[in-house]
Design a protein around this nucleic acid. Structure first.
Lengths: 343, 343
DNA sequence: TCGTGCCATGAACGCGCTCTCACGGCCCTA
DNA sequence: TAGGGCCGTGAGAGCGCGTTCATGGCACGA
């Protein structure tokens, strides 16, 4: 009957593990062992398999590996954000680069998931059914329950940027406190005495920690820590904040700004008000993004290595997946002051 | 014998299609039909399955679907670049956002693949074995053979940005020619007569097409098209190019710059040389990135909608995957002039 | 009344791999 | 020489689905 069975539904091209085995003169099992770099394979067999693989340009089918091995061979990078704005953020780009760098060479896919908070349930259902082996989370706001809920479904998680919530989720962050502290110390060393800050949003640890560093620095120098204005990560809000500071304290002679992009607005207002930078008002930013070096004047800023942040997050997650122990629950990465013209 | 078989190796949690079927009182087949939205399912069965799915928080295993259905339910976004620099690029970020936006709601994963040209063989082997159903390519340089080779292995491809090579790969691009033309027309309407350009690299169509637009604009106005300098996408190279232009033609009164980020360097040099913008030299950029609005002075620029570019690429690819016909081989997206202070 | 379609459904096979299990060869010790 | 362990290997089950194929119910016309 089944005369026409030959034309079965289209299958993906490329060799199968079976053919590699045949060419190498071993069994599928041995090929699988070689691929997964397991013990108990003779050098001879290993070489034969490798040769066959390169010869046939064989690449194992991930879907089948995942299904049989009951692991996904993939991790998720989850961006928890209302708008898709984060994607344009150099911070995110750096993290992404770092994650990717750490992943190359291993056979692990990166799934990029954007999650609007109202879709968290869908996201959890998706992640709960084993599509990824672990998750990286960035750009958390306030006390987002997502990391905790991911932990509850048993998925290893590493958060980028200290989360504000209670609980104890492993995270990797830049040392924002010390960064802020160093910025102020630098301004103090310049002889400045009326040192203000434009702080970041209060619902993110980065903002709070940099603010704390600023406070600490002023405390060290026995200077008043009264000049605080707040901004989100836009030049416009930075302009508003600086305007407010100038109105409150016309004698301000330095500002520590929680992000380069905010500092852009600060510089605009300073320029408009006839204040020279750094002669009248010294400005220190944070991030050392591209914006810092191209601003007028080029911005002295606290450099954080976001690519390293991405790498470290990934390293920490993969370590946990590999069952390593002795992993640090959380990590703080050093920052450094980059001196340019503005302070 | 197999007394202890109960403790089988750890499986991912969550219900299986089997349990959904049982709860809904139907067979696995029917559940599968409902999930894949096929015909020949009674309303009653369909409702029962949907109820069971939400009740159990069922989410089908992608690996199993891919394996059984012999399609990956995933597409790749391939970034072909030496360094990982592209990731920080707002252009890339915008495309990524667009791709993602177009993908949400469908059950299609996005795999992000960075490919260094020397790894193209690995990449091809990987893609050839059915890990994705199609590929999106961005940031091609020169006559990269990658898109052709992908087509040869039968993988549907859409390129972002017109590729330079011969052959006919479907692509989506901004209308760079018209963008450049409009920029020059604007400068001409301002009464400028010595209109230079800082062109982009010659190994990318975006650079060439914008340059052609500039040439055309000058031809229309019967002005000489002799002032061309070249730069890559950095402020530094822009500064070098502008310096060269000023040396060659001190009377230059306008510059069309092929990218905002290049224009940053141009502005710096102009400022350093004591040229007022726009009074002495009018400047028009390209992209309308964040840099444009925060530059001093804010940059008049040609806006291209990169998010739309990403969306369109994805739409085109998914259309091909769905077997639709009448799809346009390639598409050009309109640009628009954004007037700010610099011209 | 009996066919003839079409619709709705379920049983069972197989996607390509990993993993368990069994087995045979080897070296060491008794 | 016999026994025991370790190394290297292959056979085969099964991961969770999609997909065919067979079957049975129903409305319709003859």
């Amino acid at each position: 009957m089944n005369v026409m069975t030959e034309i079965d539904r289209q299958r993906r091209p490329g060799p199968r593990i079976e053919e590699v085995a045949r060419l190498a003169g071993v069994s599928k099992s041995t090929v699988s062992r070689v691929i997964n770099d397991e013990r108990y394979v003779s050098d001879k067999a290993r070489d034969a398999v490798h040769t066959a693989i390169t010869h046939l340009r064989y690449s194992p089918n991930q879907a089948a590996r995942s299904l049989a091995g009951s692991k996904a061979n993939a991790i998720a990078l989850i961006v928890s954000e209302q708008s898709g704005r984060v994607l344009g953020d150099p911070f995110f780009a750096g993290v992404l680069r770092g994650v990717h760098a750490e992943l190359t060479g291993r056979q692990i896919q990166l799934l990029l998931l954007l999650s609007h908070p109202e879709d968290h349930d869908d996201l959890l259902a998706y992640l709960a059914s084993g599509h990824v082996d672990g998750a990286l989370l960035v750009s958390l706001h306030g006390d987002d329950p997502l990391p905790r809920r991911l932990q509850e479904i048993g998925l290893p998680v590493v958060v980028g940027g200290r989360p504000l919530g209670s609980g104890s989720v492993p995270f990797v962050d830049s040392d924002n406190f010390t960064g802020g502290l160093d910025a102020v110390r630098h301004l103090v060393s310049l002889g400045r005495t009326r040192i203000a800050t434009v702080a970041g949003p209060r619902d993110m640890a980065a903002g709070l920690d940099r603010l704390s560093g600023w406070r600490r620095g002023l405390g060290e120098a026995r200077l008043p820590a009264d000049l605080v204005a707040e901004a989100d990560f836009t030049p416009e809000s930075g302009a508003r904040a600086m305007t407010e500071l100038l109105d409150r304290a016309p004698d301000v002679d330095a500002v520590f700004v929680a992000a380069d992009i905010i500092a852009l607005g600060v510089l605009q207002v300073l320029h408009a008000r006839g204040k020279r930078v750094p002669e009248d008002v010294a400005v220190v930013g944070f991030d050392d993004s591209l914006l810092a070096s191209t601003a007028t004047p080029p911005l002295t800023t606290v450099r954080q290595d976001v690519e390293q942040l991405g790498r470290t997050m990934t390293w920490r997650l993969l370590g946990e997946l590999a069952g390593e122990d002795g992993l640090p629950p959380s990590l703080l990465l050093p920052t450094s002051l980059v001196r340019r013209a503005s302070a």
